[in-house]
Design a protein around this nucleic acid. Structure first.
Lengths: 217, 217
DNA sequence: GAGATCCTTTGACCTGGATCTAAACGTTTT
DNA sequence: AAAACGTTTAGATCCAGGTCAAAGGATCTC
């Protein structure tokens, strides 16, 4: 094989190994993990983990932030997360509610799943959020409402990427705004993380907030 | 490794092999190919090709239509094509015009690339096409215009899936309507196939037609 | 039917790469 | 400095699986 095809096989080969898949899946919740912790979680030796992390990093899927004697690994871009999301949707019947991940989950570093989609829809219908070009922006009313909820004021003008949810085939809010909203949702206990990496559980508060947005006129 | 992760690694592993990547890439133009022809194109023995085709078929990525002593293989669903498209967009800078595939190409069995996106935009702006729910439909005016161009009348009511172009991050027309439009475009010489599998070249006629749609009020 | 064409299956070969242990490297703490 | 901790590198092992030649079906042509 002389010339490589467009890098497809290399890229797919990166995720093609079961151990590397586990790594990427763990990292899909957007947080950075040190190598040793990943090794323990995936049940391989530290050496093996280091090996795979090097491969994934060289392949551009991961970035590493050295901090002291730890080296924290995380997904390189949200594009990586999107590919993984989409890959996960293949083979599955779309929008299966049997999977708790369909209800609410992290997609890289923002809210996805039914709750993420519902939230976006509620915000848009109530006029708190609108699409400008290919990005989401808060409206003036949206800014006021979010400030009251504890949204950091320096992030009010941040934009959100339109991100497709592959279990539902419907857009939700990604990008910087998505990250800020996930932060807010975690701090305000709209959702909480579970022991399963990407999975989130929606609290009663979360449901009430989403419903509340719809009540705004 | 006892329990499989969500089937991610299996799926990625399918495309992870260079030979299988070539196969899938060839099949991305939506047509079905007999096993022998694929073997010749990819430069492997018939035995090897048969082996890989069996794997891809078992994995759900391909389907096979036996016709006489030939067995024609093709992509199983358009979801497969989407994943491959998205995979291809990783690692690349988005919207690179250096790649002829960005100008116009087949995405499974419909038009993609800049031309596909432009066409969709022109049709939508001129009121010939509109979005109903999550699908495209021709308007009454659109139906008339398409009939004059040779569009088969029995397909006028067919719907198109909203399909994202990953080199551009902008939607174009997929689904049954997308297939019908690609057929039309090929018959009317708006575009023609090249020796490179998925690549299409836009003719002057094609450009004129796209411009013409914009002129409609 | 006999022969040709197309595809798959079988069996054997061989390489790539995943994995581990052990040792080296770098950082922080004492 | 020395010890403790986290990570990477080196070396060795071992197996999955990609590959091809040869044989076996299946289907068409004459």
């Amino acid at each position: 094989m002389i010339a490589v095809n467009g890098g497809f096989s290399e890229l797919a080969g990166l995720i093609g190994d079961p151990t590397r898949t586990e790594i990427v899946l763990l990292l899909m919740d957007g947080r950075a993990f040190p190598a040793g912790e990943l090794a323990a979680l995936v049940h391989v030796s530290a050496a093996t983990m280091s090996h795979h992390l090097a491969i994934l990093t060289a392949g551009g899927l991961l970035t590493v932030l050295p901090q002291g004697r730890h080296r924290y690994y995380q997904l390189a871009t949200d594009a990586v997360a999107e590919v993984v999301e989409l890959l996960g949707s293949l083979g599955r019947t779309p929008a299966t509610r049997d999977n708790p991940l369909a209800e609410a989950r992290c997609c890289y570093n923002h809210l996805a799943g039914a709750f993420g989609v519902d939230l976006r829809r509620a915000l848009e219908l109530s006029g708190l959020l609108h699409v400008v070009g290919d990005a989401y922006e808060l409206t003036a009313e949206g800014g006021c409402a979010f400030l009251k909820l504890g949204f950091p004021h320096q992030l009010l003008n941040v934009r959100g990427k339109v991100c497709l949810d592959w279990t539902q085939r419907v857009p939700h809010i990604g990008g910087p705004m998505g990250t800020a909203i996930l932060d807010l949702a975690l701090r305000q206990c709209w959702v909480r993380r579970t022991e399963i990496p990407r999975q989130l559980v929606v609290s009663d508060i979360g449901r009430a907030v989403a419903a509340g947005f719809l009540a705004v006129t």
